[in-house]
Simulated assay, not measured.
Amino acid sequence: MGFIGLPAAGVNSPAAKVETATATATVTNTVTATVPGPTEDSSTSASASTSPAVRWSGPLLISGDFNLDSVPPGGVLPTDGDIELSQISDGQEAVLRSDRANLAVVPQGESPDAARCAVLAQTQGQRLADLPVAAGGKLCLVTNEGRSALVTVTAVHPQAQNVSVDVRVWQKTD
């Protein structure tokens, strides 16, 4: 009978408190694992707070060259714009190019801020290259006057030979 009492005594023994301490340590480890999430959010908030203000943001219908430095962005004479619809390939992709700016494809799932767009344009951008972009695709560039811009293709219209885009142009940084 003493054997049957031992487990009951073990539940109320200091060993049971050690198990509780171990469970607390596990919770502490879980909290520690969660800490990097807010740190990333904090750095994102910090970069967002230091990011320049948005100069202009909205939808555009592009069928030729567009100057993204004007407010609102507007069509210009050929080869004077920051971005140009070169053609529509296979009815599914807008082929965009620039004679003045480096265009960089944004990695899928990324929503860059002004600084990240500038880095992408400077390090991975291409000038005078035709970049096919399907609906949902994004491009970063730095305009002729030095403003970061994000262009998101929202729809391709093969019959009309134009493309709908959402554009965000940030103020210049000094």
Rank of each mutant, 00 (worst) to 15 (best):
W170P: 04
L141Q: 08
T39L: 14
T22D: 07
E40T: 15
A101W: 00
A134D: 09
A118E: 12
T20A: 11
L139R: 04
S47Q: 12
L139D: 09
A15R: 15
A101T: 10
T143S: 12
P7Q: 05
D41P: 00
Q124I: 05
V169Y: 00
V71A: 03
S43A: 07
A134L: 04
G37D: 08
G81P: 04
D69R: 09
N102I: 07
P38Q: 08
V31M: 14
L77R: 11
L6S: 08
A23T: 07
T24V: 04
Q171S: 14
Q122A: 11
P158G: 05
A160Q: 13
H157L: 13
V153T: 04
V95H: 06
K172L: 01
S47F: 07
G10Y: 11
D41R: 14
L6E: 14
G81C: 00
E93Y: 12
Q92I: 13
P107K: 09
A121C: 08
F3Y: 10
L61S: 15
R116E: 05
R116N: 04
G81L: 01
V11H: 08
Q87A: 12
G75Q: 15
A160E: 13
P36N: 05
V153D: 06
G136F: 05
N29V: 03
V54L: 08
G125D: 12
Q159V: 14
D174G: 13
C117V: 09
I4Q: 10
V151W: 02
D90E: 15
S57V: 13
V54P: 02
L68C: 00
G136V: 04
P7K: 05
G109H: 12
D166S: 08
G81N: 02
V11C: 07
S111T: 15
T143W: 15
S47A: 07
V119P: 00
A160H: 06
V151K: 03
T30G: 13
G91W: 06
V163R: 00
D80V: 06
L6D: 12
A104W: 08
H157F: 11
G75C: 04
G75N: 12
L103E: 12
V133H: 03
A149R: 13
L85W: 02
T50S: 09
V105S: 01
L103N: 12
Q161Y: 04
A16M: 14
S43F: 10
W170G: 02
S86E: 06
G91L: 02
A149I: 15
P36Y: 08
V76P: 03
A15N: 14
D65W: 07
A48V: 01
P72T: 03
L68T: 00
T32K: 08
T34A: 14
A8M: 09
V106Q: 06
V35L: 14
S45H: 09
R97S: 11
N102P: 00
G137H: 01
A149Q: 09
V169R: 03
T154A: 03
A53P: 01
T24I: 06
R168I: 15
A121L: 06
L139A: 06
T173G: 05
D166V: 07
P36L: 07
P38K: 01
T50F: 07
D41A: 14
L141C: 10
R127G: 06
V142W: 02
L96V: 05
S63P: 00
Q159D: 15
S63Y: 01
T50Y: 10
L141R: 07
S45T: 09
D69W: 11
P132D: 02
N144V: 09
S57P: 06
A94E: 09
A135H: 10
